[in-house]
Design a protein around this nucleic acid. Structure first.
Lengths: 231, 231
DNA sequence: ATCAAATTTGGGATGGTTGTCAATAATGTT
DNA sequence: AACATTATTGACAACCATCCCAAATTTGAT
């Protein structure tokens, strides 16, 4: 087996260790996405990454460690790209709709990452909280802008998140197409007390969705060796 | 260990085999709810049921078989009790709200069953479809009664289901109290285009919630043996 | 009480998983 | 080319799950 994905791509100019680590992370994403977190096995991850099982333990303490690393980086990466796409938008309803649509576009472009997020959102409360606080900003803004009549609290945020994940799953399964993101945006906006006609307009207005971008982090031009200490 | 739950109660007058089977099913519910379906082990189920591990395989082919049996019976049982509680209600919005609230009440009374449903809804598409068709009836009725302006399709139904499950999970985790059911009902009704003021009224109107009832199926008065064929 | 059928038992073969470690290979420096 | 450092390997121990089956036990009819 031989899997290579965004992490490997991003690490292709780094040292051998970093490349192997990246291959393991791509493989982990694939396995989590395919089998779910609980059923995933370290052996299978190593097999997909084309390394001996012992190599896994050189790079990660155990399955939890690689899962934490992987989901943290995926979530951060998505958040960064979404923020970027929304930087000019002031209106909270537009921001929400844009974020949702951009999120689903990214996940659809990298279905494995999408599935991994969905599957691990259940087991990683941290990840859940991270996404909640990300969304909360725009929802609160909508209330202070007088757009949403409904009070925002953890229950609502949880509900909205579950709707978005459900739509994402439908999209990734192939049960829904590109329109899924607009549909769920519209539904959420209505639910929050935004006027239905405007909700429709905002959720379906054409926006520029940026495709998936793996050239993320500033790359070190040279692989690092252990520092040579000069006295 | 020694677990006994609704299945055992229901089977207490049946033959030994049926009682053992019922104990295994109660134990399976407990283990699925606690560890999740994937992580659950047959050994653990047998241990909780106080039977030797071999006994498990006398009653069920494997883990999937007991899971299918258990979730099917839970879902059926819930559906039956919900239908019963709603038999007099005509208004679709009220029916929906009542069903949702009754569902969550049942699950809250038997958290293990609730968790088992939540966990297996992910892995058992059959169960998912069963619940979808159950809900679809009232949603469609709402459209023909002119109460909901939004067209009902699989995407909407999926979304509504995910909202209900999310609220149920919050309730079972303890993050939300009894109000969770009314809140999610109200949100869904708004989302479907039901007027917000009425949605609030319907979702929060006091209704009679029936508690959990284990006296479900007509019980055979006597344990059955192999039929004695009289000619 | 006796017997045959039904039921349960628990040991064990098989296979898969985790995590470790000494040996081996690859890599960059001098 | 020789060397020190870094990275990878793969066999292995310890464990646990699944599933089978021959033996033991329980059950209800007679």
């Amino acid at each position: 087996m031989n899997i290579s994905g965004p992490f490997a791509l991003e690490a292709r100019n780094l040292g051998k260790s970093a490349r192997t680590r990246a291959r393991l992370m791509d493989a982990a994403v694939a396995v989590f996405a395919r089998d779910g977190f609980e059923a995933a096995s370290v052996n299978e991850i190593a097999r997909l990454a084309d390394v001996a099982n012992g190599t896994f333990y050189v790079h990660f303490k155990d399955k939890d460690a690689i899962a934490a690393d992987v989901t943290f980086r995926i979530a951060n990466d998505f958040a960064r790209q979404i923020d970027e796409a929304m930087s000019q938008i002031e209106d909270a309803a537009e921001r929400f709709s844009c974020a949702t649509r951009q999120f689903m576009e990214l996940a659809a472009a990298q279905p494995r990452w999408g599935w991994a997020l969905i599957r691990s959102a259940w087991y990683a409360p941290e990840l859940h909280r991270q996404m909640e606080s990300f969304m909360r900003a725009d929802l609160d803004r909508g209330v202070s802008q007088g757009l949403f009549t409904r009070t925002i609290d953890p229950f609502i945020i949880d509900t909205v998140l579950s709707m978005i994940f459900s739509a994402l799953a439908a999209r990734l399964r192939g049960d829904a197409g590109e329109e899924a993101a607009s549909r769920v945006s519209e539904l959420v906006l209505c639910m929050l007390g935004y006027p239905p006609a405007q909700a429709h307009a905002v959720a379906w207005s054409p926006i520029v969705l940026k495709g998936f971008n793996t050239q993320i982090l500033p790359r070190n031009p040279k692989p690092r060796r252990a520092a040579t200490l000069v006295i």
